[in-house]
């Protein structure tokens, strides 16, 4: 059993939790993820690691309530236990040792961007960041990102704060203005990552994305998480989750992410009355 030590509500649909998982905390690197199962009847879902504290033996998760399991997890409180918490999984991010890196986070994608920005910042890489959300109240981890960025830009789709538009549009504006960068790391919803890598493609800037597909075991056994990258089938759990965004078949990834939409909706309907059980 893995105890929830702390819970914080970041936005109405985004929660932050600190989980006691000393073995995972000792090993995890930026870019890796964990598999969580809430209880005996639960499904196994991958969640990206938003932060970790090796000394305290804790892992921080930030998740958006999108399906039944994340909604149910959102209703858990500090002191409760998760049945299973497995990791660290996936290949650690290949981070530059020096130079300038643009970190782009969309929506809840700011959470997985954070440990990468932090690691880059700590090793002396110049970090420029763009974070965004639909509106100002949905912006998460602003202070944390500001602390590990040399420059932080905020975007909102509705213009309620900062740049009025998508993070990809802000990035495009900066590139057009001649801002130089050695690499881009973009994490967020699939359409946001696709738009971002389309912006960088003409500039030929290496652009990493982090895929978060449907998984079952998460350890390289089931193949549910396959994605086409550079014309080859890759398993995100053992070959990823980070890939060269210019090589990813996003159309397929988006389609595959919707495979269980009807079941998700049915499960959501079924659990709504119980307030997340």
């Amino acid at each position: 059993m893995f105890k929830i030590l702390k819970k914080q509500i970041l936005t109405p649909v985004t929660k932050k939790m600190v989980i006691e998982a000393p073995l995972v905390a000792r090993k995890v690197q930026p870019g890796q993820f964990v598999i969580v199962r809430l209880h005996e009847k639960g499904e196994r879902i991958p969640l990206t690691v938003a932060d970790f504290d090796r000394a305290r033996g804790t892992i921080t998760l930030v998740f958006q309530e999108v399906g039944k399991t994340t909604r149910e997890l959102g209703a858990y409180e500090a002191g409760q236990d998760l049945a299973d918490f497995v990791g660290p999984l996936g290949v650690p991010a290949e981070l530059l040792e020096h130079g300038r890196v643009m970190c782009v986070g969309g929506g809840v994608g700011v959470a997985p961007i954070y440990p990468k920005a932090k690691a880059l910042f700590e090793r002396g890489v110049e970090v420029l960041s763009i974070i965004g959300a639909r509106s100002t109240d949905l912006i998460i981890l602003e202070d944390e990102m500001r602390a590990v960025s040399h420059e932080l830009h905020i975007c909102t789709d509705d213009g309620s704060r900062g740049f009025h538009g998508f993070v990809s549009q802000k990035l495009e504006e900066m590139l057009k203005a001649g801002v130089q960068m050695d690499e881009v790391i973009a994490v967020g919803p699939l359409p946001m990552m696709r738009a971002t890598v389309e912006v960088t493609r003409p500039y030929n800037i290496k652009s990493w994305v982090s895929l978060n597909p449907i998984m079952v075991d998460g350890t390289g056994m089931c193949g549910a998480c396959r994605a086409t990258v550079g014309g080859e089938t890759k398993f995100c759990c053992v070959h990823g989750p980070m890939f060269d965004g210019h090589l990813v078949d996003f159309r397929e990834a988006i389609r595959r992410s919707q495979m269980y939409l009807p079941q998700e909706q049915a499960a959501n309907e079924a659990c709504r009355c119980g307030g997340g059980k």
Partner: peptide
């Protein structure tokens, strides 16, 4: 599906009892 995924969903995760079990 791979057979691994198909069978893991059914056997380990009890998808044949969805929605009592969460895995579809």
């Amino acid at each position: 599906y791979s057979a691994n995924e198909w069978l893991t969903r059914i056997n380990l995760m009890k998808a044949y009892k969805f929605p009592e079990f969460d895995t579809p």
